[in-house]
Simulated scan of single mutants.
Amino acid sequence: MVIFEDEFMDIQSGMVALALEAAGDANVEVVYIYGSIEGGMTSFNTFFRMGGVVRGLTEVVPDRSLALQVLDLGTDDLGRLRTLCGERGRACPTEIRGRYETATGGYRVHYSYDPIVADPDYGISPATVFDTWMDDVQSGKDDLDPAGAPGSSS
């Protein structure tokens, strides 16, 4: 019997592997994955830390069609998470923020179950949330840093 948590993590592992494969031979230190699954909207994106510098997907994968394919495949993976949660009667997170350390293989993730995009008072686009997170990481405010991020799990 396959355990829900194992399937859930396998899908996330696939998203990390997708991002790493897209980066190719680049010297990736950290892979960040972002997923928004809310209402009828599903959105995936990724960014990287390379040589101490934060770089977006299009900086690492300059081929636009390949970058769009990565985003589409990641979004498909999020759809699989939504389906898995529905089939197993589990709450599906509205947001996933993952941080994978290539040197150690360590993965930290934060799940949100509250409305973010569809919040009637404060709703913002997944792209805005993603860009803000990437900016925060770039300025040294990495809320998933293994050095002790509250609300994260390994």
Rank of each mutant, 00 (worst) to 15 (best):
S125M: 09
D76V: 13
S43H: 15
D10A: 13
M1T: 11
K141W: 11
L144K: 07
V28I: 12
A118R: 07
Y122C: 14
S65I: 12
L20R: 11
T132L: 14
P62W: 06
D25M: 06
V70Q: 04
R97F: 07
G106D: 15
E59W: 04
E101P: 00
V53F: 06
P62L: 02
G86W: 04
S125T: 15
S36D: 10
R90K: 06
L81W: 00
S36M: 11
S153Y: 10
A67H: 01
N45C: 05
G151A: 14
P146R: 15
S153H: 13
Y113W: 08
C85G: 01
D77P: 02
Y111Q: 11
M41L: 15
Q69W: 08
Y32A: 04
G148S: 10
Y100N: 07
P150H: 14
A19K: 02
V137E: 06
Y107W: 06
D119L: 00
V28Q: 05
V117K: 08
P62A: 05
G86D: 05
L144M: 15
G79M: 11
S43C: 13
Y122A: 13
T83I: 10
I3N: 12
Y107D: 09
V61M: 03
C85M: 08
Y122D: 11
V16R: 04
V109T: 13
S65D: 10
D6G: 08
G123A: 12
G14E: 09
P126G: 03
M9K: 13
Q12T: 14
L71K: 14
G140Q: 09
G24V: 09
Y34L: 00
G151C: 11
V30P: 01
D145C: 08
G24H: 06
L84F: 05
V54Q: 00
A23P: 01
D10T: 02
T104K: 10
M15K: 08
F44Q: 01
V53C: 12
T42E: 03
T58M: 04
V54R: 00
S154L: 15
L18P: 01
D136P: 01
G106K: 15
Q69P: 00
T58N: 12
T128K: 14
T46W: 03
T94C: 00
R55A: 04
T132M: 10
A147W: 06
S43Q: 12
V54T: 09
L18W: 02
G89C: 02
R80L: 12
S125E: 13
A149E: 07
S152D: 09
R99K: 12
E38F: 05
L71F: 04
Y34C: 01
T104I: 09
T102A: 12
V30K: 08
A149D: 12
V61P: 05
D76T: 07
G106C: 14
V60G: 00
D6W: 08
R55N: 02
A22N: 08
A26D: 12
V117M: 09
I11M: 04
G35D: 06
N45V: 02
Y122H: 10
V2E: 14
A147T: 11
N27A: 14
Y34K: 01
Y34P: 00
L66A: 13
E101M: 15
Y100T: 03
L20C: 09
L68W: 08
G148R: 08
H110T: 12
G56S: 11
A103K: 13
